Amino acid sequence: MKFTAPLVGGRLEKRYKRFLADVVLEDGSAVTAHCANPGSMLGLKEPGSRVWLSLSDNPKRKLKYSWEVIEADGALVGINTAHPNKLVEEALEAGRIDGLSGFASLRREVKYGKNSRIDILLESDAGAKTYVEVKNVHLMRQPGLAEFPDSVTARGAKHLGELADMVADGHRAAMVFLVQRPDCDRLSLAGDIDPTYAAAFAAARAAGVETYAIGCDVRLDGIDAIRPVTLEIA
């Protein structure tokens, strides 16, 4: 995935109200950027951190800047949760996720379950369906170990239950964790942050939901999901 225009650098002043971030740009001007990330962003919102923003040319947008990347722990980390579905789609089409290949068609945001939409629906020539849910990951509390989630996610637990329902109906279902940072080669669940999600995850795996993780190369011109990440989940 390439950014459509060069990113604009600056320093983070603060992230607040979840979806807002005040940034001082390199030219000294101050702007408020949209932060498309509903999580806690633990470890990724320190004032003074170097950040990079995209600039929209849409005249109808109230906030023209969007926060895309932060430098943390010596690495570039993608924080925009609007990108993971596209990144996983590209990885699937390139055959980078072992176990999720050989599909004939790929559709996004397809209605299923109880008033939900699956992130990606894969179908074979014979019509067999694989329901794929994508979760963004960027929490790192131990070197090399990514963790999910970074805050309580009742919605995430609901999705796991719906994936299990698809397996019970005779379909395949998979959870793909997209790690938007290049410095992690392992992934685990943050059960201390959300034990309910950890329990729902264990139940979903026992029901036959498949799990995968893929890591990203994060650059200032784009982001690509290219590396397998080892799941360290009991």
Rank of each mutant, 00 (worst) to 15 (best):
residue 101 S to D: 15
residue 26 E to Q: 09
residue 111 K to D: 15
residue 167 V to K: 10
residue 206 A to S: 15
residue 48 G to A: 04
residue 111 K to I: 14
residue 45 K to I: 03
residue 45 K to Q: 15
residue 27 D to E: 15
residue 222 G to Q: 02
residue 60 K to P: 00
residue 149 P to D: 00
residue 67 W to I: 02
residue 199 A to M: 09
residue 187 L to I: 03
residue 27 D to I: 09
residue 223 I to K: 07
residue 189 L to M: 13
residue 226 I to D: 13
residue 4 T to A: 13
residue 66 S to H: 01
residue 103 F to E: 12
residue 96 R to T: 05
residue 174 A to E: 09
residue 195 P to R: 11
residue 213 A to V: 03
residue 60 K to R: 13
residue 155 R to M: 11
residue 197 Y to S: 08
residue 73 D to S: 13
residue 90 E to H: 04
residue 76 L to T: 03
residue 195 P to L: 08
residue 36 A to L: 14
residue 219 R to T: 07
residue 21 A to R: 05
residue 182 P to L: 03
residue 216 C to L: 09
residue 97 I to G: 02
residue 5 A to N: 12
residue 156 G to F: 11
residue 154 A to W: 11
residue 141 R to S: 03
residue 175 M to Y: 02
residue 226 I to F: 11
residue 91 A to P: 15
residue 128 A to T: 00
residue 57 D to P: 00
residue 103 F to P: 07
residue 109 E to S: 15
residue 12 L to W: 09
residue 130 T to S: 11
residue 40 S to R: 10
residue 19 F to D: 10
residue 25 L to N: 01
residue 41 M to K: 12
residue 122 L to A: 12
residue 46 E to Q: 12
residue 124 S to Y: 04
residue 32 T to V: 11
residue 83 H to V: 10
residue 228 P to K: 04
residue 231 L to N: 12
residue 133 E to F: 01
residue 109 E to I: 11
residue 225 A to M: 00
residue 41 M to G: 06
residue 32 T to A: 08
residue 116 S to T: 04
residue 26 E to G: 00
residue 68 E to Y: 06
residue 117 R to K: 14
residue 110 V to N: 07
residue 152 V to I: 15
residue 85 N to G: 14
residue 167 V to D: 04
residue 68 E to C: 02
residue 18 R to Y: 10
residue 61 R to N: 15
residue 197 Y to A: 05
residue 114 K to Q: 05
residue 43 G to N: 06
residue 214 I to V: 10
residue 93 E to T: 04
residue 61 R to D: 14
residue 80 N to F: 07
residue 36 A to M: 13
residue 1 M to C: 12
residue 201 F to Q: 13
residue 12 L to P: 09
residue 49 S to C: 07
residue 132 V to R: 03
residue 125 D to G: 10
residue 186 R to C: 12
residue 152 V to A: 13
residue 131 Y to V: 05
residue 119 D to K: 04
residue 131 Y to T: 12
residue 79 I to L: 11
residue 119 D to L: 10
residue 45 K to E: 10
residue 229 V to W: 05
residue 127 G to Y: 10
residue 46 E to N: 09
residue 176 V to K: 03
residue 163 L to F: 01
residue 21 A to C: 09
